[in-house]
Design a binder for these strands. Structure first.
Lengths: 294, 294
DNA sequence: GGATTTTACGCATTTCGTAAGTATT
DNA sequence: AATACTTACGAAATGCGTAAAATCC
């Protein structure tokens, strides 16, 4: 067996079993690709691919198992190069974080200040997206880690560590009627609701709680962004349900914040990363930072 | 990079950084080994080994990190060959189990009967040893899995799944004084105790419970084997504390079994294996069998 | 007919082994 | 002196590219 043969398997998988395309990806002529595949199948003495005449149509059952191991081999190889790179230019290192808007704006800043203090030369990238996107980016190795309340748990491959727990709060304009009357879910449901998009920042949990009470929420605005929600609350569109850390006690004096802990259970924000992938020490340092309270 | 270079790293680690020995292990002449190491270090542009003049004395810090990835690469490669082998001769397959005496004699039999029924052609090996040995054997790949109550949890690399929970029982000859009087730990501690060796079958838990009560146990016989303990109980050496599943209601009619659940908490027997290592489907079937209540 | 895979042949590169030389214990 | 590593050189093996043939859609 050969590393180029292993790479060929990966590329065949990426290119819908097209030998020509896979060979191109490896910068060899197509006939060389055919030959290497043939050699590998001969060495293992089994068919890695289903064939329709000469064309490859997919992996065999055994081929699929072998592909999985092939991916592990190449990941480890990539890690070796990453380690070497890390050795040569620790200074020009890049920390790539994927997270949602709420984390980027309200959780990360103080963490990154601390991180920059201990690692002044590391460049930081913050990629924003939906929780599902974050997970994809981590899986594909585009980013080092993802910080999110959602979607991380759905992915088996990711190692997850808790960062912190928090609650949702209700935000209304000052002097809103809800402030005076007795508070309960039914009272809230009387107003148009502004909150997060599906799959973001614990939104599913919010809707579920109202549904369990037999209440239908009239959600008038779905946003990815806590600030957008707050602004439309200011404009009188309705009442907002957002994450508690999205409240800025100085800037949000025109809003009244109402505790929802009696009704909504806590959410836990986590950091997720691929434990198989080599991560430079500064990435581990950063994970340590975000998973330890303040 | 090259698979033979990767193998060379592994062999250098196994052979105390002796290039000649490592080269021998790879069936190449020593000069070829030197050359490959040089090529690899040149490609990565870093020193993998500490050197004293020409001699290699150990891995550098970076070299050690790379060694770990190299081991992952070769493990995945071995897995590919294992998958191919599994494909060609599923019939001549061998299931290698490591466990303690108690598991081999009192837990495995009914499981293996069921396993043999569904996989008649698989040959079964049962390797007995102390819990620590079992863990080593699994880590080194000498066996497919270990079944034990102890030591598995100490090993990070192993994947552990619970098999079943059980309690310790007190065994005494019929008509023993302990049967009539009020039972408590102090009463038991009045007699010489026969039980397992340190590190076996929940022994640590037993001693601890007595110690917590301020009692010192007079252990007159430590054994690895429940049957040995029972026999010496029969001979009047003292009272035995053994695992409940080691009682055979038919063969042990001359012994009285006394429940210890009020004092000793439950033990959990687990199966441990390397999740990185490829295990043929019949091994997974067996794990399923032992982790599901019969 | 265009795209894809297989096979054959010659050339370039890689890697090995032999052998001689250098350093370490 | 024995062991361990490096370097030089020719030989063997591996792997590539070109080109032509076969097959699929």
């Amino acid at each position: 067996m050969n590393l180029s043969q292993v790479k060929l398997l990966i590329e065949l998988n990426r290119n819908q079993f097209n030998l020509s395309a896979a060979s191109d990806a490896l910068h060899i002529v197509q006939s060389a690709g055919t030959r290497q595949l043939k050699l590998l199948e001969e060495e293992l003495n089994l068919a890695l691919f289903e064939r329709k005449g000469k064309r490859l149509t997919g992996f065999t059952e055994t081929g699929l198992k072998i592909l999985q191991q092939a991916e592990k081999m190449l990941l480890a190889q990539d890690n070796i190069y990453a380690i070497a790179l890390d050795f040569h230019q620790p200074q020009s290192a890049h920390l790539k974080i994927a997270c949602t808007h709420t984390q980027a704006k309200y959780f990360l800043p103080k963490k990154l200040v601390a991180f920059k203090r201990s690692h002044p030369k590391v460049k930081v990238h913050i990629e924003q997206g939906t929780p599902k996107q974050l997970v994809d980016w981590v899986k594909q190795g585009q980013v080092d880690l993802a910080i999110s309340t959602e979607a991380l748990d759905d992915c088996e491959q990711l190692t997850k560590i808790d960062c912190y727990s928090w609650h949702h709060v209700l935000v209304v304009p000052n002097h809103h009627h809800l402030i005076d009357g007795p508070l309960n879910l039914a009272a809230i449901a009387d107003y148009p609701i502004l909150t997060y998009m599906a799959g973001m920042t614990g939104q599913g949990k919010i809707l579920q709680v109202f549904k369990d009470e037999g209440l239908t929420l009239e959600v008038d605005l779905y946003a990815t962004d806590s600030d957008v929600i707050k602004d439309y609350v200011r404009l009188g569109f309705g009442v907002g349900i957002i994450a508690e850390m999205a409240i800025d006690s100085k800037l949000d004096k025109d809003l009244t914040v109402i505790d929802l802990t009696p009704w909504l259970s806590a959410c836990t924000t986590k950091v997720g990363f691929l434990s198989n992938r080599y991560l430079p020490s500064f990435v581990h340092d950063f994970i340590e930072l975000v998973t330890n309270p303040s």
